[in-house]
Design a protein around this nucleic acid. Structure first.
Lengths: 358, 358
DNA sequence: CATTAGCACTCACTTATCATGACTGCCAGC
DNA sequence: GCTGGCAGTCATGATAAGTGAGTGCTAATG
C-alpha cells in the first residue's frame, strides 16, 4: 500500500511527539498540536491504517500510539525534519574540534565528548586501525637501562604505547641506527605488507634482527582485527533516559558500553557517511539491549574514524544527525598541519593533549 | 561505655549478615545463625544497647537492625574476620599482575581490572603525578614534518602523550642534540624544581631555548595538582548492588565515576597503607552519593600508585582488604626489571600493553 | 467516499481498605 | 542476668473499587 502524504504527516507527528515526551500519542493530541484542520476521529482512522501498515502500535487498547521500529525507520529515512543548532552549540563544537589536537585518538575522544554534551546522550568514538595504514616512521627510544619505547608513525596516527624489554648492553646509538635502518625498510609499506615480513627479512642487517622482530610484532598486533581505540563519553547519561529506568536494562546497556568486542562491530556503517541502526528494524545482534546507534565516519586531520551516539530508539535523530554532520564538516575543514610554534600555541596544545588523558 | 565482648560479637554478626543479604537483621536470625547459646530476647536486649551506643539503627520499629556508619567503622577497624582468597582468585591476580607490564599506568589499570573482577565491585586506580618525581630522561622524537612527540621518563613512569608543533626546518639531528642537552640539564631534578626554571634557564644553549621552553611547559603541566591517570573498571557493576537500584542514586554514582576532579581527592588515604572511607562516618564531601571507598597504595615496579574499590557502604570489607593486601604484596615482589628479550617475552609484553589500551 | 460527532467499551493506573506477619519492647518469673 | 511470653507497631502485599484517557465503531452529513 502506498502511504499517502497525510499519513506521512501524521506518522511524523506521532514520532516527533513520542520522541519529545516518551508517551503514547493520542489522536486528540495530534489533532490539537499538529492537525487542527481535521477532527480527531479522522486522525483515528488514519492511525488505524498506519497501524495496519506496521508503522505504529498500541501498548494497550485504551492507550495512544507509539512508533514501531519500522515507523522509526521510515521517519529517519524520509520524514525527519531538519534540526537547527543553536549559536551556543556551534560554539561548543568549535571549542572541542580545533587544530590544536594532533593525534587521531585524542581528536576522536574530543569528538565523542562534544557529541555527548550537545545531544545529552552517550557518545562513542572509534579509530579502527587498518591494514592499509602506511608506516611512515619507526623510532625506538631507550627509556631505561633495559626497556625501550617503540613509536610507530603511520599516515593516520601515532602508535606510542608499546614498551618492550631490551637485551643487555644495547646502546642508544645502536637503537638510533636500528630505527633509521628499519624505517628505511618499512617506510611506505602498509601494515598488511609488513605483517607478512618474509620479503623484508632478507633486507634487514643481521645486527638489527631482534629489534626488527620486535617491531614486526608490534605492527602485526596493531593491525589486528578489532584493535583500535574506543572512547565512550557520558555513559551516565544513559540513565536519564526513561527507557532505561529499569535497572536491568540500564545495566545491560552499561555492560554493552564496557564490552569493546560487542560494541565495535555495531559502529561500522558499511562505508556510509551516516548509519542509523535501530534494534528491531535493522539487523542487530540478539541479546543486546534495545537501542539505536547513530554513527558517522569522519575524515580529516590526517585520518578517519567513526563517532556517534548510542541511546534509546526514541531519540532525537534530527538533532543527532545535524550534530554529526556539522562536526564532520568542522573536522574536514581543519588545516592539515600548521607550522607554528609560538608559546601560546604550544601551551594550549599541551593542555589539550593533557586534558584528553583524563 | 565500654563495649563488652558479647556485644562486639553480636555487632559483628549483624554487620556480616547485613553485608551478605542486604536485609535488616532480626534478633531471631542472630540467635539461629550466630548465637544458639542465648535466647533471642537476650540478643534483643543487647541490640537495644548497641543501638543506644550508636552502632545500629532500625529502619522502623518492627524491622531488624542495620549498622550505622559508626557500626561499620568499628567493624572494619576491629571486628572484621579475615578472608581467605580461593586458589582461582589467586591465579587470576597473578595473571593480571606480572612483570610483563612495564609502565605504571598500565599496571594500575590492570590492578583495577583484577580488583573489580574479584570483588565484583567497581574498581579505581590512580597514578598521581608527583612534584617530587625525578626526571631521568627527555627524548624528543620527530614524528612528522612539523610535529614532535615529547617523551619524558621519570623515576616513576613514562610520559609519552605530549605532542607539539615544531617550527619549520627543525632537523632530527637538532632534536636529538636538544634532547641530550636538555636531559643533561634536567636529569636528577624533580618536577618541582624544573617547574621553576629560572635556575636552569641560564644553562641552556641559545639554539635550544624554544625546545627547552616546550619541555618545561610539559613538565609543569605534568606536575600540576590533580593531574594523573585515573582508571575506572567495571562501572556497570555498581548497578548490581541493591542500594543503587534506585536509578537516581545509580546515576549519581556513575557521574561521580566520570568526574575525575571529584573522585581523585577521595582516593588519597593520607599516606596510609589502607584507607577505608565510609560516607557518614568519615569526612566525605557533601552531596556525594552514599558509598564507601577502600583504597590501598601500592609501590613496586618502579613506582607507586593508589587503587581500590568504590561501592555501597555494605560491602565485603574483609574480602576487599584481603585482595588489596595480596595484590600489594604481588606488586612489591615484582622484579625491578629483567634483562630478557626472547621472542615469547616480547610478544606477550606487547599483547599485554595492547590489551590495556582497550 | 471522506469526514465527523457521538457513544460504548476497554483497561492501565490510582487510591482506599484490609489482612498478614515479621519484628521489637517490655514485663514478670526464674 | 537470662528467658518466655505477649502486646504493639508498621512495612508489605493483596484485593477492590473508582477514574479517566483513549480507542473503535456507527450513523449521519456534505
Amino acid at each position: 500500500m502506498v502511504i499517502s502524504h497525510r499519513k506521512e504527516r501524521i506518522l511524523q507527528a506521532v514520532v516527533s511527539s513520542y520522541i519529545d515526551n516518551c508517551e503514547p500519542v493520542s489522536s486528540a493530541h495530534i489533532h490539537q498540536k499538529y492537525f487542527p484542520e481535521v477532527s480527531s476521529a479522522t486522525i483515528r482512522n488514519e492511525l488505524a491504517t498506519l497501524e495496519e501498515m506496521g508503522y505504529l502500535t498500541h501498548p494497550h487498547v485504551s492507550a495512544g500510539r507509539i512508533p514501531t521500529a519500522a515507523g522509526y525507520r521510515l521517519y529517519v529515512d524520509k520524514l525527519m525534519p531538519k534540526h537547527k543548532l543553536s549559536r551556543q552549540e556551534l560554539k561548543t563544537i568549535k571549542h572541542y574540534i580545533n587544530d590544536k589536537v594532533r593525534d587521531l585518538e585524542n581528536m576522536v575522544r574530543n569528538t565523542a565528548k562534544v557529541i555527548s554534551e550537545i545531544t545529552n546522550l552517550t557518545a562513542v568514538g572509534y579509530v579502527q586501525n587498518q591494514k592499509t595504514d602506511m608506516v611512515k616512521n619507526v623510532k625506538i627510544v631507550k627509556i631505561s637501562e633495559n626497556a625501550a619505547l617503540f613509536v610507530i608513525v603511520t599516515d593516520r596516527t601515532v602508535l606510542k604505547d608499546a614498551i618492550a624489554n631490551l637485551p643487555d648492553n644495547v646502546s642508544e646509538q645502536f637503537l638510533q641506527e636500528a630505527s633509521v635502518h628499519i624505517t628505511s625498510i618499512f617506510a611506505g609499506h602498509t601494515i598488511d605488507e609488513i605483517s607478512n615480513p618474509v620479503r623484508f627479512a632478507k633486507l634487514i642487517r643481521k645486527e638489527y634482527e631482534r629489534i626488527f622482530d620486535a617491531v614486526v610484532r608490534i605492527i602485526k598486533n596493531y593491525g589486528g582485527d578489532g584493535v583500535g581505540t574506543l572512547s565512550v563519553e557520558g555513559s551516565a547519561k544513559i540513565l536519564s533516559q526513561p527507557e532505561y529506568s529499569n535497572i536491568g536494562k540500564a545495566r545491560a546497556m552499561l555492560e554493552l558500553l564496557e564490552a569493546k568486542e560487542q560494541l565495535v562491530p555495531m559502529l561500522n556503517g558499511a562505508g556510509l557517511n551516516f548509519s542509523v541502526k535501530i534494534a528491531g528494524a535493522d539487523e542487530m545482534k540478539e541479546g543486546l539491549p534495545e537501542c539505536a546507534i547513530v554513527t558517522a565516519s569522519f575524515s580529516g586531520g590526517g585520518g578517519n574514524a567513526t563517532a556517534g551516539v548510542i541511546g534509546p530508539i526514541r531519540m532525537d535523530y534530527g538533532k543527532v544527525l545535524t550534530v554529526l554532520d556539522y562536526i564532520g564538516r568542522e573536522i574536514a575543514s581543519l588545516p592539515q598541519g600548521k607550522d607554528i610554534m609560538n608559546e601560546e600555541n604550544i601551551e594550549e596544545n599541551i593542555k589539550e593533549v593533557d586534558n584528553e588523558e583524563e
